[in-house]
Each structure stands twice: as C-alpha cells, then as structure tokens.
Amino acid sequence: MQNQSIQVKGLQKSYKKLQVLKGVDFEVEKGTIFALLGSNGAGKTTVVKILSTLLKPDGGTATVNGFEVVSKSENVRKSISLTGQFAAVDEVLTGRENLIMIARLRHLEQPRQVADELLQRFGLTGAADRRASTYSGGMRRRLDIAMSLIGKPQIIFLDEPTTGLDPEARIEVWKVVKELADSGTTVFLTTQYLEEAEQLADRIAILHEGRLIASGTLEKLKKLFPPAKVEYVEKQPSLEEIFLTIINKKEETKDE
C-alpha cells in the first residue's frame, strides 16, 4: 500500500518555444493538503492540467493515485476531480440541474438525492432552482466545488479556488477545503496568495519560472529564512478583520 497520492518526476512542458515547466519534482501524501504557490504565469495551471489528464507532458513522469497520467488516463480520471480556474458551471442550468448532471455522468444511483445533500451542505438550497447565471461569484464557486465532490473522488484539484472572491466567500472555501482533507481526501491546490497556503496547506511548494525553488512544511520553509526577531508592535486590526466584524454585526442584528 503506497502512501503517495501524487508523484511527479522531472516534469517538462513547452508551448511552442516557451518552456513553461523545466523539470518539476514533488510528491503529495494521501489525505493531505498540498499548495502549489506561484505568481501568474509560473506554470501552476499547466501542472494541474497535466495531472488532470488535460495536457500531455513533454518529459518526465507523473502518477496520480498510482496511475501514470498518460498511459492510464482513464484510471486517473476515475480517481480525481478538477475545479478549474474559472467556475465551470453551466450557467443556463439551475444549481440543482448542474449537480444532477454531474451525478449522472458519474453514473451514481440516486442523482437527485446526491444533489439535495450537496445543496444543503453548501448552503445553496434556497437558490437550488435558480439559474446559475444569477449566482454571485461566491455561490458559483461553491456550486463548482460541490460539483467536484460528486462521486467522492480521492484526489481533488483546485486551481486558484479563491481568486476573484470576496473575503467572506474565500473563508467559506477555506472551510470546505479543510473539511475535505479531514475526511481523507487529498487536496492539491494552487494559489498566488501566501496567506492561503499558510492557512490551509500541510506542505507548500513554490513554483517560479518553471522550477520548484522551495518545498516542505511551513515550519521547514520558515527555517530557510533568518530567525524571527522579537519586536513590540501595537497590532492594528487589518482591513479584512474590520470588514468581517462589521458584516457579522450586521447579520446578528438582522437575525434579531
């Protein structure tokens, strides 16, 4: 019984003359959250696309759930789920119809029941029969992730799951990701936010110009840098904290 969900060795990929990945190696343990951190154009999405069988690598090997991504792509697809960079929901269909559609494509016994459960879990029951085009960015992303959970895939890829979301929606997504990992799902996520990697990930790898320049646990990465100095600074609340406090107060007064 191997303990690695994802193994990548010497991964290379070029688009025409532009070399995007120049030999990337990493491993992801089962049931952990792995964050691939990098700025725009670092090659994060290319890694996700190769691992989710959408692109073929030019060199190196990649196995997902023990299956090689090129030769055993069908087995890989049975083990994974992809939530792409932009919420891939069918905007003409309602939230419920989107979920039922994916459940049917996963050949589940009771698509309606599966959809109902997920709508409940993601707080979309009230909007279930509205077209997805009327959803807010956060709701759309929640629906998108809910669609990815159908069929209980062992590994979930989240490509920049919180880009473009407001702070509230971002925290909701974080909660979902943590719950997923707690239930034993392996989560591979890419992000350009340092804070997101810090909050969620068991292991972090930094991709820069097609190479991994650092990887390990947060503690290990912290040791790479000079030891923290102790300074006394009055801690001002961040704008995010202020925003969330005000919002929560509003909600409380609404409830009363």
Partner: peptide, 10 residues
C-alpha cells in the same frame, strides 16, 4: 472551462 470539467471526468 466546461470542456475541461467534462474531459477530466471518466
């Protein structure tokens, strides 16, 4: 991205 979703499914 709908194609990508479908194509990453079995």
């Amino acid at each position: 991205g709908i194609f990508e979703r479908f194509h990453s499914m079995p």
